[in-house]
Design a binder for these strands. Structure first.
Lengths: 247, 247
DNA sequence: AAAAATTTGTCAAACCTTTGCCACCGCGCT
DNA sequence: AGCGCGGTGGCAAAGGTTTGACAAATTTTT
């Protein structure tokens, strides 16, 4: 298991670019304490919340108590075999991605994998980067439901795919964070959103700056997008509550 | 040979909004009943219509009776070898994508595949997600990029078929990796693409280098193709997000 | 109705990340 | 051994984000 012990990837920033979601919870089902520790560190460094279970039974219990966003499952498990856990979970939540860790490639039977309903598969020894990449990919796929590419209102158009905003036909340059904020607001139009919620949803659990930061970003959005930033129409503040975006 | 030794296809991004698309029919040619069952379930879950054939002969018959959108082909087959089936199909319908399931990652297989005209292949312990992704990619490939062999802009022309790039009439030599990166970018023009996504789609999972590597390749592309590499026009960086190719 | 308390707007400096670029290492091919 | 390509790590520069202070606005208390 050399590679797992390898130096962890450079502490990446919470958000792997193309998502505005907070990182999710990960359920790691693994009996080897060393691997547990390594995985925990790996994912926590990347901004996920990690829960570890050492055996199949407790994993299923934990799963039912609070379903995570992804499950990482070792096939060799005490109490209840990995395959059974996998099947159980798939029965309960078919769309929840499961990444299987297998000790060797001797499980080389594709049948097994397919039958299990696992979504992805990594053989040990695996590289931290690869596992991370697969988890990210898994998350990306499931959360891509109902994705809008383009919204426009009042001469402003927001293209989520190109990450481009135009006002009256002219491109307005937004920074990454500004864009993410905008995206979240637009996707939650008409709803009052507290600073805390924005912080959670846009900034993620990793870095939790002061609430002033939110104000600043709203400010910038108003300056860049409102016709009269002094009396904002779209980015409204709801005193004592937060902000609300209306078209 | 050098550059063309690269994998037959470049993996592609799964389409974000495939939920409403009319997914096609898939012809699965596979003799192991267990795998048959698993594959059927996998694809039907994803919305495809699946037809299964257990041997080469019946596969060809079925194929002629009603051509599917994609063929998934196991190489080890009774009656008629997978390679023959592949050749036959390619002879009848050159543009129809075929994804081959190969038992081993034997190199000779890959060469063989190229000769056969398969569009993609998946080697033995494969993950369902991966297979699904490849099928989706194959479908998109034919529907979108199949006929586009050549793209040109700003005095630069990219010939995907010949794997050749020219700038102002002069051939520019790109390495395999550079070319693949270029190809992915061009095929996803105008969209912001994160380093992670590039890593996934261009580099693949098996070797997952540092994100720095992506920067380097972009750098090279800029040096080789941009008129003024210092202020790139086509290979734009989107700070905090990734890169975006625009013509 | 004024004062006090709380919340929000605004700005620029401080701080931290990300990117561009380069030199270097290693592996496979001749 | 030499070459070329792909990958790594480091450094400086570029660019963004966060903070903290204070003004302005709003609500709550006297």
């Amino acid at each position: 298991m050399g590679q797992i012990a390898a130096p962890i990837t450079t502490a990446r920033l919470a958000d792997p670019m193309n998502s505005t979601r907070p990182m999710g919870r990960i359920l790691v089902v693994e009996d080897d304490p060393a691997v547990q520790k390594a995985l925990r560190r790996l994912f926590e460094t990347d901004g996920y919340t990690v829960e570890v279970q050492s055996n199949g039974r407790s994993a299923l219990e934990s799963f039912q108590a609070a379903p995570p966003a992804v499950v990482i499952l070792d096939l060799r498990l005490p109490k209840l075999s990995g395959s059974d856990v996998c099947k159980e979970i798939k029965a309960l939540a078919p769309s929840l991605p499961i990444v299987v860790l297998s000790a060797t490639s001797d499980v080389s039977d594709k049948v097994l994998l397919l039958e299990l309903g696992a979504d992805d598969y990594v053989t040990k020894p695996f590289s931290p980067r690869e596992l991370l990449a697969r988890v990210r990919a898994a998350l990306r796929h499931t959360s891509r439901t109902a994705h809008i590419n383009l919204v426009s209102f009042d001469g402003i158009s927001v293209d989520f795919k190109k990450m481009e905003v135009q006002r009256d036909g002219k491109v307005v340059v937004l920074t990454a964070q500004e864009f993410k904020t905008l995206q979240f607001l637009v996707q939650n139009a008409d709803r009052v959103i507290g600073r805390d919620e924005l912080l959670n949803e846009v900034w993620g659990y990793q870095n939790y700056p002061s609430t002033r930061t939110v104000d600043n970003h709203i400010l910038k959005l108003r300056q860049k997008l409102e016709r009269d930033p002094a009396s904002p129409v779209h980015f409204r503040t709801v005193h004592g509550m937060g902000y609300k975006f209306v078209r």
